[in-house]
């Protein structure tokens, strides 16, 4: 649905996006992660033909954006971090104005969309009287009007309260589930991305440092949290049994393939050790992200394997090039 091939963007001397290759397949909820200034909005700007790439090719819905922007964006809806409207006009008039840049839209369709986002009854009020949450819903409505196949959401939860974020998340997931839309979500709210996305890419200083499924991101050494009477002694016992490969933080161990936690418990209890808790550790996206950023900031190129991460998967990209 979206394809970026070796895309570079410079603003004067500043390199905003560096040789970015990215593919968002149809039907995915794809998360674009990165800190402020990582190049996410610039990449999205290039997808929408608002920012011209210095080098490389951007294709949306099969069409090259630079050459045929109109066809590329025919079935695309977009929302930006702070949705801007004509505040002095009504919500309904705003929807009419914006949708006419795509095609003539029937009043029936506008009513449907207003109803879908839950703004019925407030659509005739001036947008300046809308709350932040209502503006977000209006932004979603304008994105849905052209009956898009692809939704591009650039920091859509920015400035919303927790309730608003929750509401927006459910709407987006409903869109994916009920209408089968492909969704590209740019965010630095890791919790949001974790709850919505099936696949992610991480940008750092304009370069892609990871691309893969959420499961791959979380794939890690199989850490097991172990609370015992004496952790040091337990580690010695398990090493002696040849079942341990690594340990950290006075409570985590990794076990050799085929070794189950039940064996560990039996062995330690048999040696007279008290075992209070033993459980496999589920890494979060935040663990993965922070470890990835830390490794990148230590100077490792995106393609370098780097030292083992506490949690998280190694970078899948090699030297900024798409894997063959």
């Amino acid at each position: 649905m979206i394809e970026l091939r070796h895309v570079t963007k410079r603003f004067g001397a500043r390199l905003a996006v560096d040789d970015l290759t990215l593919r968002v397949p149809a039907g995915e909820v794809f998360g674009l992660l990165g800190h402020n200034g990582a190049g996410k909005s610039t990449a999205i700007g290039m997808m929408l033909g608002q920012v011209w790439p210095t080098a490389g090719e951007v294709r949306v819905c099969g069409c090259e954006v630079a050459a045929d922007r109109q066809r590329a964006l025919e079935r695309v809806g977009a929302i930006f971090e702070t949705p801007a409207f004509y505040d002095y006009l009504s919500g309904r008039r705003n929807l009419e104005l914006l949708s006419h840049y795509t095609a003539r839209t029937t009043p029936q369709r506008i009513r449907e969309v207003i109803d879908w986002v839950g703004l019925t009854g407030r659509e005739t009020g001036a947008v300046r009287t809308y709350s932040h949450g209502m503006r977000a819903r209006l932004a979603l409505a304008q994105a849905l009007l052209p009956q898009p196949d692809l939704l591009i959401l650039d920091e859509p939860g920015e400035g919303l309260d927790p309730e608003g974020i929750h509401e927006l998340r459910h709407m987006i997931l409903r869109l994916h589930r009920e209408l089968g839309l492909t969704i590209l979500l740019s965010s630095h709210l890791l919790n949001e991305v974790e709850q919505m996305c099936t696949r992610i890419a991480v940008l750092r200083e304009g370069r892609k440092v990871f691309e893969g499924t959420l499961a791959e991101a979380k794939q890690t050494q199989d850490w097991v949290r172990m609370r015992v009477g004496d952790f040091g002694k337990a580690v010695k016992l398990l090493r002696a049994a040849g079942w341990l490969t690594d340990e950290r933080d006075g409570q985590f161990v990794t076990l050799k393939d085929g070794v189950g936690t039940d064996q560990i418990v039996r062995h330690l209890v048999g040696q007279g050790m008290a075992v209070y808790e033993i459980a496999r550790e589920e890494p979060t996206l935040e663990d993965f992200y922070l470890a990835l950023m830390e490794r990148s900031s230590r100077g490792g190129r995106p393609g370098d394997p780097g030292p083992p991460l506490a949690t998280g998967a190694p970078s899948r990209e090699t030297g900024g090039k798409e894997p063959a």
């Binding site: 929408l48 033909g49 608002q50 922007r69 109109q70 066809r71 590329a72 964006l73 025919e74 695309v76 809806g77 977009a78 930006f80 949705p83 801007a84 409207f85 914006l98 840049y101 795509t102 304008q142 052209p146 591009i152």
Partner: peptide, 8 residues
């Protein structure tokens, strides 16, 4: 930016 996310 809202306008230019449309095919005009």
């Amino acid at each position: 930016r809202m306008i230019l996310s449309r095919p005009v």
